[in-house]
C-alpha cells in the first residue's frame, strides 16, 4: 500500500514551502507558456528567456497543490542553463518516470528509474534526474500524475512554440 511518505517526500515539501525561481519575467523579451489542469483548477505560468538554443532564465507563477507547484519548482532548477535538446531529454526521462506502472516499482524503485532513463535513451550517466527522483512516488497515486507533469507539459509547449517561431 502506498503511504503518504511516498508522495510527500521532504524535498518536495521543501520546494512547495520555498519555491525556487518563483515569479514572472517581462514578456517580451521573455516567452510565456501556461499549463492548466481543468480537473482541479491548478495552473502553472512559465516565463522564460532564451539565448540562442539555451534557456537562460525561467520563472514559475500560478497556483496549485503541493505536487504541481513543487514539481514546477524542481523543474525550474533543473532546466535553467540547459539547451532545448537537453531539456527535451530531461522531459522525456521525467515523463517516462511518471508513466511507470505502480507494480513495477519494487523496493526503492531504483530499478524502475533505470528503466525510465533507458526509455529516455540516457542511461549513460550524462542525464540525471537528481532531486526530481523524489517525485517518483507520485506514480503510486495516479490521480496526482497530472499535477506532477503540469509544469513540464507547459514548458514543452512553450519551447515548441518558441523554437517554431524563431
Amino acid at each position: 500500500m502506498a503511504g503518504l511518505e511516498d508522495l510527500y517526500r521532504e524535498i518536495i515539501l521543501d520546494h512547495y514551502r520555498n519555491p525556487r525561481n518563483r515569479g514572472e519575467l517581462e514578456c517580451p523579451p521573455a516567452h510565456r507558456s501556461e499549463g492548466f489542469n481543468p480537473l482541479c483548477g491548478d495552473e502553472v505560468v512559465l516565463t522564460f528567456e532564451m539565448d540562442g538554443d539555451t534557456v537562460t532564465d525561467l520563472r514559475v507563477g500560478g497556483q496549485g497543490c503541493s505536487i504541481s507547484q513543487a514539481s514546477a519548482s524542481m523543474m525550474s532548477s533543473a532546466v535553467i542553463g540547459k539547451s532545448t535538446d537537453e531539456i527535451r531529454d530531461l522531459t522525456r526521462a521525467f515523463k517516462a518516470m511518471m508513466s511507470i506502472h505502480e507494480e513495477s516499482i519494487g523496493g526503492d524503485g531504483s530499478e524502475a528509474l533505470d528503466g525510465a532513463s533507458d526509455a529516455a535513451g540516457a542511461n549513460d550517466g550524462t542525464l540525471r534526474l537528481g532531486d526530481l527522483e523524489a517525485l517518483r512516488g507520485v506514480v503510486k497515486f495516479p490521480v496526482r500524475i497530472k499535477c506532477a507533469t503540469l509544469g513540464w507539459n507547459a514548458l514543452a509547449t512553450g519551447l515548441d512554440e518558441t523554437v517554431g517561431a524563431s
Binding site: 503518504l4 508522495l7 496549485g64 497543490c65 503541493s66
Partner: peptide, 12 residues
Amino acid sequence: VHPHDISQVLDQ
C-alpha cells in the same frame, strides 16, 4: 493547504 493535498491526507 491546497484542497488536493487535504483530500489526499484525509484519504489515508
